[in-house]
Nucleic acid binder design. Structure first.
Lengths: 301, 301
DNA sequence: TGAAGACTATCGGGAATTTCGATGGAGAAG
DNA sequence: CTTCTCCATCGAAATTCCCGATAGTCTTCA
């Protein structure tokens, strides 16, 4: 009966978007923390309003109809505009209660986020951070509202994204203090031949210094590959292996390793991105300045 | 507690828009056919969500805050996009049930609408027409969703409006068959001197032939002014007065009057306008073609 | 100054909607 | 053939929404 406009709210559209992204009612229910029958009911209402099945069984999976794709795209834009509209224009850090999603990777988690969290706990204890790994899908996480802020060595040149450069990085070599190479300046020859632990970032990203090496016609003596720089010191210590990591990551390893300048330059920027959805939101803007400050401190230190 | 997104639906935004337009909760309640307390409750929720009073008492009236104006403007755009999204892509005239608003004036109501209604009753009995007077605010009625289609001798050159020219009109003189002027061709001199019933359309619109006259340096011998051409024949008959009305309006007066060519040309187009909100809607598109056909028939007849 | 009128805010009860847990049915995997 | 996963549906419980009544505020008019 009520195929009227009033049958729909923004929560329904959000559910629709999630179902579309997950391709699953049950998973959406879990994500939202509601019962599966609730999602089913919501989708049933959406089907009524749009006079379209939206999702049809096709073998094992639920496949979205063409109309559904259109609707999700449009309503996604609607949701973003709505969120931008609802975003508070002023807020008091001391009492504000909300959750902000940040998409980033290991580097940012160890260099920038810790200070951000300290500031937050002190000045805005009501802001809960939700950190997710960006890997290669940081941009889509942002557009899909899975995160509000994206930080990383990423380049986005499309319109519709706001950007602030946080700091610039470069690489250093790390090794066991007992390693003979620690005593002298590292030249290209030595660097190329040294057994190296290469961080492959899950295979989705190649460290800048490696690109530079390759362009110069060299390849590292890869003794081992790891997906992340986490706890590299534990791997390296007591061996003759070296590793090449961003300067500020090396610092987090403390005295367990020594750092030596890397003969290849791999300077790259760490940028912060966000969208119009959160641009006008006072708490988001505030957090962005906090992140900017934290990054500047990390750069100085 | 729930200052969350889920507190809001499109119906709330529509209520907000109405309150903003009316500047009154009670009046909005009347328009929507709900209790005043319901509107109050809805506005209270909106206030919560937007953290803004939205409307504040200022003496007798409720005045919208600046933030409220912004929100209304943005959510109005949102509502339009949403309605465009929900609009059915296909429909069966025989069973479709919906209401479509047309904003127009006397001319269209007597020349085009009657045939449209006949077609509708026959082919799409479930479509209810809501005709409102456009007077001078036809465009804002359209943008405020008070009507879906605007028909009239109006020119809209802004982007965002769709247009279809329905027909072109010109004026004729009408008078009692016993009037001596009915026997001969009407020249300028005779026309200017004849006692005339001038239709002033409530003071908001000047008939084209009058503008032409004025530019030529003439003024009518105004014996009487009426706001609308409705039942002009009853006024004219038995008098020496003439009136100048659009050709197809003159036809509706039947044999009670005779028509004579008017010495001043006042050719003007009758256009139909609509917006993106209803552009993709199958029933609206269908009705627009029905209106187009009806107008074409009116032009031929 | 006081009373009446017009308007919004708020309250409690009742109606409607939404949610949940349980269950059924359909398809895929083993 | 059984089991597992997933969505649809059902009845009951919880929540939300709407209404009528009433209180409070401001303006107007006597």
């Amino acid at each position: 009966m009520a195929s009227d406009i009033r049958a729909l709210d923004f929560a329904s559209l959000r559910t629709l978007r999630l179902v579309h992204a997950h391709g699953s009612f049950s998973q959406t229910a879990d994500t939202l923390g509601v019962a599966q029958s609730t999602v089913s009911y919501t989708v049933a209402r959406l089907r009524e309003v749009f006079s379209d099945p939206l999702f049809v069984r096709q073998g094992s999976a639920m496949v979205s109809t063409k109309r559904c794709d259109e609707i999700v795209e449009q309503s996604s834009a609607l949701l973003d505009k709505f969120e931008a509209m609802v975003a508070p224009r002023e807020f008091d850090p001391a009492v504000a209660a909300l959750r902000i999603g940040i998409s980033c990777n290991y580097y940012e988690r160890v260099t920038i986020i810790p200070e951000v969290v300290r500031v937050l706990r002190h000045e805005a204890p009501g802001i809960a951070l939700k950190i997710i790994s960006s890997t290669v899908q940081g941009k889509s996480q942002l557009t899909r509202s899975e995160s509000d802020i994206l930080i990383g060595p990423i380049q986005i040149n499309e319109p519709g994204y706001f950007k602030r450069t946080l700091l610039r990085e470069d690489y250093v070599c790390i090794m066991d203090p007992a390693n003979p190479l620690a005593k002298s300046v590292m030249d290209v020859e030595t660097f190329v031949n040294a057994p190296q632990v290469v961080v492959n970032y899950g295979g989705n990203f190649q460290s800048r210094f490696l690109s530079v090496m390759e362009r110069a016609g060299y390849a590292p003596n890869t003794a081992m590959e790891v997906p992340s720089p986490a706890n590299l010191q534990d791997i390296i210590c007591g061996t003759d292996m070296i590793a090449t990591v961003p300067t500020r990551v090396a610092r987090t390893f403390g005295d367990a390793i020594v750092t030596v300048a890397c003969p290849f330059r791999g300077r790259f920027p760490i940028d912060m991105f966000w969208t119009a959805r959160t641009h006008a939101s006072a708490p988001h803007a505030w957090l962005r300045t906090i992140i900017g400050t934290a990054a500047a401190n990390a750069a100085k230190a």
